[in-house]
Simulated scan of single mutants.
Amino acid sequence: MPDTTDVSGTTLWHTFSVRDAEAMTAWLRAVGFTEHATYRDEADPSVVVHAEWAWPGGGGIMFGTERPDSAIAGTGPAAAYLVTPDPDAAFDAAVAAGATVVRPMVDQDYGGRGGSVTDPEGNHWSFGDYQPA
């Protein structure tokens, strides 16, 4: 039976915690994310309580500084697949900003092009132009 799920208008916001919010925000900015909102702890501004960073093509990520009382405590390293019309540019920007190459950019047998890195926090990011249906 075919899948008739309507995914039009679907937006994904990936969520994770980070150890060093300043380093992560610098890395995200270098990759191409834009800050939508960042809320910091009034007593310790180095602690991000909640942040929302948007991807220009839609969707984005939410994160906060790792802390025991966080709603996302213990999420640890995460993985995300970022669909973009120019995956090579996003990949190159990620590497230039300090990411470690896991899988170089290649043309995939199933269509599209993709590669993956780990960010400074150890999260796994895949960049590609293949849009899952």
Rank of each mutant, 00 (worst) to 15 (best):
M1L: 13
P2G: 08
P2Q: 04
P2A: 14
D3K: 07
T5Q: 11
D6G: 09
V7N: 10
S8K: 11
S8V: 03
L12W: 12
W13E: 09
F16P: 00
S17L: 00
V18C: 02
V18W: 06
R19I: 01
R19H: 05
D20H: 11
D20E: 02
A21Y: 01
E22Y: 06
A26F: 04
A26M: 01
A30E: 09
V31H: 05
G32D: 13
F33D: 04
T34W: 03
T34F: 12
T34N: 08
E35A: 15
A37T: 14
A37V: 14
T38V: 12
Y39M: 10
Y39K: 01
R40L: 05
E42I: 08
A43Q: 14
P45W: 08
V47H: 01
V48A: 02
H50C: 04
A51I: 01
E52R: 11
W53V: 06
A54V: 08
A54K: 08
W55P: 04
P56S: 11
G60M: 06
I61Y: 00
I61P: 02
F63W: 04
T65K: 00
T65C: 03
E66R: 05
P68G: 03
A71I: 06
G74H: 12
P77I: 07
A78I: 03
A80S: 12
Y81D: 09
V83H: 08
D88V: 08
F91L: 07
D92V: 02
D92C: 09
V101T: 15
V101A: 14
P104I: 07
P104M: 09
D107V: 15
D107I: 11
Q108C: 09
Q108A: 13
Q108G: 03
R113S: 15
R113F: 15
D119K: 12
D119S: 09
E121C: 09
N123I: 02
H124A: 14
F127A: 03
G128N: 10
G128W: 03
D129T: 10
Y130Q: 06
Y130N: 08
Q131W: 12
Q131T: 14
P132I: 10
